[in-house]
Design a protein around this nucleic acid. Structure first.
Lengths: 318, 318
DNA sequence: ATGAAAGCGCTAACAT
DNA sequence: ATGTTAGCGCTTTCAT
């Protein structure tokens, strides 16, 4: 029962008499013995740990993503070291160094926007996967929600409901997501040979903007029968304005939001139909890709994850 | 320039000629050398890592807490291993074992409620600090927002504004926070020799409950001049109902919420005055206590952190 | 089939 | 003041 033999027994390797292996296993069980990951890491160079680097403070979007990643990684007995760089490049560099010094096996990089961020892959000796916020280098692997497809889902839903005069209210113009979701909407309207009514509106992501946008819509294009909004907050703001003007939702105008943010969609009057980015799935997919890359099978490119649509009373009367 | 000498130079210990120390430091700088935390951990038993265990899925409350903890820990060069047990005791046990095997120096335990949770301290060989969600063992160290003081803040604010007919709308009756915030409110009303008007209402944390509660208030105690709500969502719901009935806020009725949840307080009409639990500070304090405990100076007991009050237009006309 | 020994990167004690 | 050595807990040769 030497240490070497025990090691073989526990790892399942080597040439051992079955009875010996059994005895060792039994003893280990009894003593509650677990091989030290630290010592193992020293020897193998692998720590079974990945760094999760969020460039911009962990927000609402990061959480499901993180949980999804954790689900996938925990299966592989891999733990997550969490680092939030607070949108500070200096801090980010510091964290990267720290994580590398700790010998993480890989990185998941995320942020709070869907616009590309600078790649850090080149300077790292371990695999990196970008999740939600893609890398600006197309050769890196980035797992992102498919904003265009999400917009298409919303459009197809409205078309299927027979709506033909559809307006669009985006978030800030400088966000790619504002444009991609609009593009998807237009793709869905094409087969019905209609286009978005009036000019797409751009503003903020918040409710106050949604309320303003509602005013604009009522003034400039009062004959619409549907609005697709780039966030649930905007959609809720639009609903509030329509409601204040006694416009029926969904009878007169159907409203579809984006994010499927629980507290928002449920509190809205009426509850919002919304596109769900399935961020948890994004996290899982990203983690699985990272595991693959760590195992020597890296992939690259932009990997879009399909959005889902959750139908509620703002588009379909219950 | 042997390894032993280099070690002394870098650690600042031992007896070295200053010139040698300089040379070593310069060389280390040039080679970008960093001592391996893994090897160091093997030797010292300390990993400079703590486990952050969230019993119930990381929610809105956990994030500022986590960031605060990270701030404090990063200063001490300590990294956070994140584990979310998803309210599953089996999973929690699994994570605890994993973290212990990884030789974390301590634990921060948190959750999504302010009600006590089962202690895990006894079974662990390393220090544990509970944050936000306290331990059910008073001998453990738990850092929590002071709900009573938060309620008092709200009450004092309303009293200072000259309000005397104040109603209370709580969350679910089974949550301690619903009662503690009420107690604080009452403490603040005492010096003015008034009590809460009507029966305190209990329901849910969500807006829909706030809207219902608003109806109840208008029916049963229409002569109130203020309402304190145990969450921003409730407060916003109350505002919506009052608004629907053309009640002036704050002129007729002042409204104060709890949580200071950005998206909620700002989107509300009017924006909400709200009690802030300073969760970031809770995280920082918890982390500092953990560092102290790791350094051999443990504390114990319930450590309340004061709430703050953020005044907006729902209580004071701008 | 098992045991002995070397070494992963580091530090602390000891020897020079 | 510097170099040498042993050992943290494990795995992997290599010898038995």
């Amino acid at each position: 029962v030497s240490t070497g033999t025990a090691s073989k027994a526990l790892s399942g390797g080597g040439q051992l008499r079955p009875s010996t292996r059994q005895r060792v296993l039994a003893a280990a069980e009894e003593l509650g013995f677990h091989p030290s990951p630290v010592a193992r890491a020293l020897l193998s160079g692998r720590t079974y740990t990945v760094g999760l680097l969020t460039s911009d403070s962990l927000g609402r979007f990061s959480i499901p993503l993180l949980l999804g990643a954790e689900d996938s990684l925990a299966t592989g007995e891999i733990a997550i070291l969490l680092c939030d760089a607070r949108a500070d490049p200096i801090r980010e560099q510091y964290y990267i160094r720290t994580l590398l010094a700790r010998q993480v096996d890989g990185f998941i990089v995320t942020g709070h926007r869907s616009d590309p961020r600078p790649s850090i892959t080149a300077s790292l000796p371990v695999p990196v996967v970008y999740a939600y916020t893609p890398s600006d280098n197309p050769d890196d692997l980035s797992v992102v929600p498919d904003d265009v497809q999400g917009g298409r889902l919303a459009g197809q839903h409205l078309i299927a409901l027979g709506r033909r005069r559809i307006a669009y209210v985006g978030g800030p113009e400088r966000y790619a997501a504002s444009h991609l979701r609009l593009r998807g909407l237009r793709q869905a309207l094409e087969p019905a040979e209609v286009d978005v009514v009036g000019d797409p509106l751009f503003g903020e992501w918040q409710e106050t903007w949604g309320r303003q946008a509602g005013q604009v819509l009522l003034r400039s294009t009062p004959d619409i029968d549907a609005v697709f909004c780039a966030s649930d907050q905007i959609a809720r703001g639009v609903c509030d304005t329509l409601r204040d003007h006694s416009v029926g939702i969904p009878d007169d105008i159907a409203v579809v939001g984006f994010d499927n943010w629980d507290e928002m969609v449920l509190a809205s009057r009426p509850p919002l139909t919304s596109v769900d980015m399935r961020l948890r799935l994004v996290g899982e997919v990203a983690a699985n890709h990272l595991l693959q890359a760590i195992a020597g099978r890296p992939q690259s490119g932009l990997q879009p994850v399909d959005c889902g649509l959750v139908v509620r009373e703002s588009s379909v009367r219950s």
